[in-house]
Amino acid sequence: MITLIFSGHSTSISKAVQRANEILASDIFYEKIASLPQMCNTRLSSPEIATILKTTNRKIIIQTFWNPFGAKTKNKSSYGFLVNRKKISTVTAYAVNTLINETIHAIGSLENEIDLSKLPYDEEEENIFPWKIGVIAEIISRAKRYA
């Protein structure tokens, strides 16, 4: 199972990490990924991506930085990334989207089974796995509020 680890002092990031971990442990999350249409940035099918992600045993370390002019996140390595405290949303669902999106990028950078760079694609296109998976996580996060 993929697990996000954050030991910082930001309450909003801690809450988003906790919610993201709940989603990453949820079978519904992987069922939603498996039902996606074919994405343009990989040759793997959606069910294959869902299976790989569900069976991946990886701890992703999340650290923070503060820069009012910097990006929302920075990829540090395949084992973690940095989150800009100034730029990440304080709305949990939006922050979960960002955290899950960056987690998929980190796992994809391992050069293992998930290679998200095999096919040429436009970075602005919405039909790519990290973006779509982040949106799924955001939707699930919002739905839980009303359940």
Rank of each mutant, 00 (worst) to 15 (best):
V17Y: 08
A20E: 02
K59S: 14
R58I: 10
K54H: 06
I52R: 06
Q18M: 02
P68T: 03
C40T: 14
W66K: 08
K59Y: 06
N67V: 01
P47W: 09
S35T: 15
Q63K: 14
T42V: 11
A50N: 05
K59E: 13
A25M: 03
E31N: 11
E22G: 00
K32Q: 14
G70Q: 01
T56I: 11
E22T: 07
D27V: 06
I23E: 05
L36H: 12
P47Y: 09
C40W: 03
S45T: 14
D27A: 12
P37E: 15
I62Y: 04
R43N: 13
A50C: 03
T42Q: 03
L53K: 04
R58T: 07
I52Q: 07
L53I: 06
I23L: 13
W66M: 07
M39F: 09
N67S: 07
M39N: 12
E22S: 12
S26K: 08
I33A: 15
L44T: 04
Q38G: 03
W66H: 12
C40N: 11
F29H: 07
T56M: 05
Y30W: 07
Q18G: 12
S35D: 15
Y30C: 06
S45M: 01
I23G: 09
T51K: 08
K54W: 03
E22C: 04
L53Q: 03
S26G: 09
M39K: 11
W66T: 11
I33F: 15
Y30K: 07
K54Y: 03
T55I: 02
N57V: 00
K59G: 06
N67K: 05
K59N: 13
I49P: 00
Q63W: 01
I28A: 11
T51G: 06
N21Y: 07
A50H: 08
N67W: 01
D27Y: 08
K59H: 12
A50F: 04
I52C: 04
S46C: 12
L24R: 06
I62A: 04
R58N: 08
P37C: 13
N57T: 01
N57Y: 01
N21T: 12
Y30Q: 11
K59W: 07
I62V: 15
Q18N: 14
A34D: 11
S35Y: 14
N21Q: 10
T42G: 09
I61D: 07
P37S: 15
T51R: 09
E48T: 13
E48M: 13
L24N: 05
I23T: 06
L36T: 13
I23R: 03
F69T: 09
K54D: 02
S35R: 15
T42I: 09
T64W: 03
S35V: 10
D27W: 08
E31L: 14
E48V: 11
L36N: 13
I60G: 08
I61G: 01
N57E: 05
E48H: 13
I49D: 00
L36A: 13
I28D: 10
L44A: 10
N21F: 09
P68G: 02
A50M: 09
